[in-house]
Design a protein around this nucleic acid. Structure first.
Length: 1157
RNA sequence: GGGCUUGUAGCUCAGGUGGUUAGAGCGCUACACUGAUAAUGUAGAGGUCCGUGGUUCGAGUCCACGCAAGCCCA
């Protein structure tokens, strides 16, 4: 090596390096690492990125390039981040990094979700107050807080853990712009929202309507679901339940039975719901109250609850009115589906409450069960959320009347009593049926629950439900009436039962764009696909209008002002418009001054509520007090993050729609929907083209992580122990991100050991020898691939295939495939095969072409890997990249600033890859045989036999013969072809091919082939076909329809796998034995060297005891080899006197003396 | 209750369009290698492919009905 041109060249490079980096170990151009501290790599690379602004450069470098748009779904910073956030954020990060390498400019604006109920609840809890206290003065015994103070507190709370979030984001290497994030409480952000709301308003898509909510007539207020979940709200109560008889039209004397625990809703019945897949029966029997014969319909599974089994045998004709047992007979059975559309007569035909078709028909309801009742559910549109939704979807009208303003109102008023229209009917019916009660009822006295403090213990006490049930019994309209104990929600303030009641809300008419949303959804690539077609697609198919209203305090106010009578209203679409309207209002004298005069503009409550505007007709308009759903905030981020359209119109245009977004699958009806809905309604576009909906991160036993149970994984602790790269790699490679992940730290350890450890070993191996040989990679001086060894060509071929595989996976948003492919290449191909077989090339001799080629090949593999893996393990990849490139000074400042190296197709050599596969298979088979025969690999053997059935196969094996020979320590490979005459062939049907041709006749042919011998096989091989007679039919069997293999060599011990068969010649000749001893000797001396602590390059002298003829013969023949391997400058046989080491040679002992030269 | 997802070795996961003997890694057992060495290799054991029916010459794969777990919605 001394004096070679290569050395001089390298020497200069080192010289330069010495001064540039002032390294102490200046001879070493590639850094070597004994142990690797992965967390430290994460920290130091992060530091490097910060100091050199690598993230900023990765974007500014791509100025003018095609854009790849990513939208950040804003997290809420009022809680600390968990391990599942690492998953979500990693998933977001990798595709942005990948696309950057592929030449796109990828801007990623961070964002924060700041409004909403969770924030408010947290503040309520911390202040020890409830919703009732907000906006009230403190009074005796109660806290109180102004809306202004309350919202101030919310604003403070919501960013409380921003620092933790930012820290996590940085430490896991999620590149997103944290300097200039969008914040949903920002005035500019809200202004954009107002603009969008006004767009919807002007399209007529914003309207005020009803939604069925829990309502307390006693308190006169709606209750939120969280108020309803307060402990003690649900109580066991006894209510009158009625099974009503609804008379069918077109089927004489036939009734549908439907059960309700709220009889007061029966006057509002307008449909009946069945379960499409449930079984129903028609039963002939008698009404237990009127004793009239009736045919009734109910779910088959409920028959036993309505009829006594003892009565089943009784003949119908024997029934006498008053009999305890009522006979019954099942007439027919059918599926619920067949009942859809059946018409029935209105149960209570109250004058003025008639409805047109399709009212009073049977519809399908997905919530119908056979757990209680009749398996048929009575629907009253005004008084049940399910009822309302079903009837809206089925376009069935509900029972409502018009109030004096022309608005539709239910027949129960806000005090919880029937309107006179029902009251009058009931008064008349009570007279008609002679029903007496504890008091005289007037038309205005029918409260649906006891809201009037009536004494329930009073004699003859009857509530509205009871009165209704009596009259239904009398009119042959009730099949069963009984007290029923169940759990029913009560108002936490008044203790009175609540009603489900239609309350006013603002809606976005998403249903108007349903078809378009469905259509555009089909253009989105969902990962996994089923979330798009199923979960999201089905949701769109069953879309209802978006209820926008929230009766809360901390959120985006609805920008609609209305007159008190609701006849005039105005929607405000910008701050400027608001200012102008305020000015008008002030000029008209409605306000003395603008509430914002001299103050900072805050569009939140309570300030915006102080604004009174002037209507066109000169009336006062007040803001509708509702806030809007926070999901509108986040769904509008494509526009509002840029303050569109007030600023950045061009930026928005260049970044809409997103190419890619990712969030948890729980966002399907949340962010994914609101993004989609708004873009379709406002821009007739999707808002994202590709989306990954990731699953949950569970603990290792598959349970939900929770801080309370203590099974939550702390991301910061995990990062500290394992570093970011192994963690990210584990999250991505272990399972598809859309499946739930059972998070197990052992898995992270495994990734670290198996993948990163192996890669690191490979790098260390390279660095160690490259430094010894002073090798530095120079692309321009590299040896052309076709001039390199076959092994090099092979690994480079594999490498190109890997690049293609990673590209395909990443272009299809499949990170798991990509990471697994990289890992398999690194561990199986590069480390366990290439490096192992090529090792000797690195440590032998001078720096000739073969050795240089080996270095270059290994370097190119590692270099390419650093780029391929950089999206997934950004810290380690950059560190590896820097270690590889610093020496040559050829690299960029970071792997993340490089351009993607696409695959070189000309280097892909499928034949060579097949050959190498064969080498691996054959080696494995020989190992297996050696084990079976108990002959260790160190013992050389003469030959293996390989049957070859084609020339191609033979040449493919011959190609890698030397490799196999070295790998399994044999002298030669002998090929057995047809001519040898000793092959035993096997024939099997090629099933996929033959199955299509033969179908049912297959099994006869399969049976026939099993009986075949050499004659038949030879014939079909010779002639290309064979006429087979089965079941009296001639079948022409073609050669390509069968598979012929050789799995046996008579007289030999063989092993087979994947159609390859190998036999091993186990005969150990004297010379082979001697060679074996020589190798054993080398092995023992190497161990001795190591025990003595000798360095690789240390020379020794060796004296071997002249005591064993086998050893003597071995040394005579292989002394040179032994000396070379053990770096012995002398090797002599003789009598050992004094100090000697006794080597255990398995079969004998051998004293030697080893002295360092 | 509905929609969707998942169920394959002790554990984590692969298994286009149905094809004969269902694979990998970890773990376990044994052995080998020893100039990548706190590294590595090889082999072995380990399966009712959640269950039951069905379609088919043939089902882990397709269909139906269940069971179990999870998410979302009621």
């Amino acid at each position: 090596m001394q004096g070679s041109p290569q050395f001089i060249f390298v020497g200069i490079a080192q010289y330069i390096l010495f001064f540039k980096f002032t390294r102490i170990d200046a001879v070493k151009t590639y850094q070597e690492f004994k142990q690797v501290d992965y967390p430290h790599i994460g920290e130091s690379v992060l530091q490097y990125w910060k100091e050199n602004q690598i993230f900023e450069k990765s974007i500014s470098n791509r100025e003018g390039a095609k854009t790849f748009t990513f939208y950040e779904g804003p997290p809420s910073a009022n809680g600390t981040p968990g391990i599942h956030h690492v998953m979500a954020r990693t998933l977001k990060d990798i595709f942005c990094r990948y696309k950057t390498l592929r030449g796109f400019q990828v801007k990623r604006k961070g964002g924060w979700d700041t409004h909403g109920l969770p924030v408010e609840l947290q503040v309520e809890k911390e202040l020890g107050i409830t919703k009732e206290d907000i906006g009230k003065n403190p009074t005796a015994g109660r806290a109180g807080i102004t809306v202004a103070e309350y919202n101030k507190k919310c604003r403070e709370t919501v960013m409380r853990f921003k620092n933790e979030w930012d820290e996590l984001t940085e430490k896991i290497g999620y590149w997103v712009d944290l300097e200039d994030p969008y914040i949903t409480f920002d005035s500019n952000y809200i202004e954009s929202l107002w603009y969008l709301l006004k767009q919807l308003y002007e399209k007529g898509l914003l309207y005020k309507g009803y939604t069925i909510q829990p309502y307390s007539p006693a308190a006169g207020t709606g209750l939120s679901s969280h108020e309803l979940n307060q402990p003690g709200c649900y109580r066991e109560v006894k209510d009158t339940s009625i099974t009503g008889q609804f008379k069918l039209k077109g089927q004489p004397n036939t009734y549908i039975l439907a059960w309700t625990t709220t009889p007061w809703t029966l006057p509002s019945n307008s449909a009946l719901a069945i379960g499409e897949n449930l079984d129903y029966v028609k039963v002939r029997t008698f009404n237990p109250y009127t004793h009239l014969p009736v045919d009734v319909i109910l779910a088959k599974a409920r028959v036993a609850s309505y009829f006594s089994p003892k009565a089943a045998e009784l003949p119908l004709e024997d029934y006498r009115p008053g009999d305890k047992l009522i006979p019954y007979q099942v007439l027919e059975e059918f599926k619920g589906k067949s009942m859809i559309g059946w018409e029935y007569e209105q149960l209570l035909p109250i004058p003025g409450l008639a409805l047109p078709h399709p009212a009073f028909t049977v519809v399908a309801g997905d919530y119908v069960t056979t757990e209680d009742g009749t398996g048929i559910v009575h629907l009253a549109k005004a008084f049940g959320a399910d009822d309302f939704r079903t009837l809206v979807q089925q376009k069935v009208p509900g029972i409502f009347v018009q109030d004096e303003l022309g608005n539709e109102v239910p027949v129960v008023d806000r005090q919880g009593k029937f309107l006179p229209i029902v009251g009058e009917y009931l008064v008349a019916k009570m007279q008609e049926h002679g029903i007496s009660a504890h008091k005289t009822f007037g038309p205005n006295d029918f409260y649906v629950k006891n809201y009037t403090q009536d004494d329930e213990a009073a004699p003859d006490y009857k509530n509205t439900d009871v009165i209704l049930s009596i009259l239904l019994k009398n009119e042959n309209k009730a099949f069963k009436v009984e007290k029923y104990e169940h759990s029913y929600p009560h108002c936490w303030r008044t203790d009175k039962p609540i009603l489900y009641y239609p309350l006013e809300s603002w809606f976005i008419k998403t249903t108007a764009y349903k078809d378009r949303m469905v259509e555009l959804n089909k253009t989105i690539q969902w990962k996994p696909e089923a979330t798009g077609t199923g979960r999201f697609g089905n949701w769109l198919e069953n879309l209802v209008d978006w209820n926008l209203s929230r009766s809360r305090f901390w959120g985006t106010p609805l920008p609609i002002w209305r007159t008190a009578d609701g006849t005039e209203e105005k929607c405000i679409g910008s701050i400027a418009e608001l200012q102008a309207e305020i000015d008008k209002s002030v000029a008209a004298g409605l306000m003395t001054a603008s509430p914002y005069a001299g103050k900072e503009l805050d569009l939140h409550r309570p300030y915006v509520d102080d604004v009174i505007l002037l209507s066109p007709k000169g009336q006062k308009m007040f803001r509708e007090t509702d806030l809007i759903d926070v999901w509108f905030d986040s769904g509008a981020m494509p526009y509002a993050q840029w303050h569109y359209p007030f600023e950045n119109k061009d930026v928005f245009a260049a970044n809409f729609p997103a190419d890619y977004i990712a969030e948890g699958v729980d966002q399907t009806r949340g962010w994914f929907f609101t993004l989609h809905a708004l873009s379709v309604m406002l821009f007739d576009s999707v808002s994202f083209k590709n989306v990954i909906a990731n699953g949950l991160v569970l603990d290792k036993n598959g349970n939900k992580m929770s801080k309370r149970l203590g099974n939550a994984i702390d991301p910061f602790k995990t990062l500290k122990e394992y570093g970011p790269d192994a963690l990210r790699w584990y999250l991505l490679s272990n399972a598809n991100p859309w499946d739930n992940l059972k998070f197990n730290l052992d898995g992270v350890t495994e990734v670290q050991r198996r993948f990163f450890g192996t890669l690191q070993n490979t790098y260390n191996f390279f660095a160690l020898y490259a430094n010894l040989d002073a090798f530095i990679y120079r692309a321009e001086k590299a040896i052309p691939v076709q001039e390199r060894a076959e092994l090099d060509q092979w690994i480079l071929s594999k490498l190109q295939s890997l690049i293609l595989e990673v590209e395909a996976a990443m272009d299809g948003y499949d990170a798991t495939k990509a990471t697994r492919a990289i890992q398999n290449f690194t561990v199986d191909q590069l480390s366990n095969w290439y490096v192992r077989l090529a090792r000797k090339r690195f440590w032998r001799g001078d720096m000739q072409a073969d050795k240089q080629a080996a270095y270059e090949t290994l370097y190119e593999c590692l270099f390419t890997l650093s780029q391929l893996m950089s999206s997934f393990a950004p810290f380690y990849a950059d560190w590896l990249y820097k270690n590889l490139t610093e020496a040559g000074e050829s690299g960029k400042a970071s792997v993340h600033l490089t351009d993607w190296n696409t695959a070189n197709h000309s280097l892909i050599n499928p034949d060579l890859e097949t050959s190498m596969d064969l080498a691996q298979t054959i080696s494995s088979l020989v190992h297996s045989l050696r084990k079976k025969e108990k002959i260790k690999v160190r013992q050389p053997l003469q030959r293996i036999l390989v049957p070859v059935l084609s020339e191609k196969f033979k040449s493919q094996v011959a190609h890698v013969a030397e490799l196999i020979q070295t790998e399994v320590n044999i002298k030669e490979i002998e090929y057995l072809d047809d001519a040898s005459g000793i092959l035993v062939k096997n024939i099997k049907p090629n099933l996929p091919v033959l199955g299509k041709k033969l179908g049912p006749k297959m099994r006869f042919v399969v049976a026939a082939l099993q009986g075949w011998g050499a004659t038949e096989i030879n014939q079909i091989e010779r002639e290309g076909n064979y006429l087979l007679s089965v079941e009296g039919e001639e079948i022409d069997l073609l050669l390509e329809e069968v598979l012929i293999s050789s799995q046996d060599i008579p007289g030999w011990s063989v092993a087979s796998d994947q159609g390859v068969t190998v036999a091993l010649d186990v005969n150990v000749t004297e010379e082979l034995k001697q060679e074996g001893v020589a190798r054993d000797l080398v092995n023992r001396i190497q161990n001795l060297r190591k025990d003595l602590g000798l360095e690789v390059q240390d020379k020794i002298t060796l004296l071997v005891s002249d005591s064993n003829p086998l050893v003597n013969a071995s040394i005579a023949l292989f002394g040179g080899y032994i000396q070379e391997e053990t770096q012995a400058i002398s090797l002599s046989l003789g009598k050992l006197e004094g100090e000697a080491t006794v080597l255990d040679m398995d079969e004998f002992e051998l004293p030697v003396r080893l002295i360092k030269a």
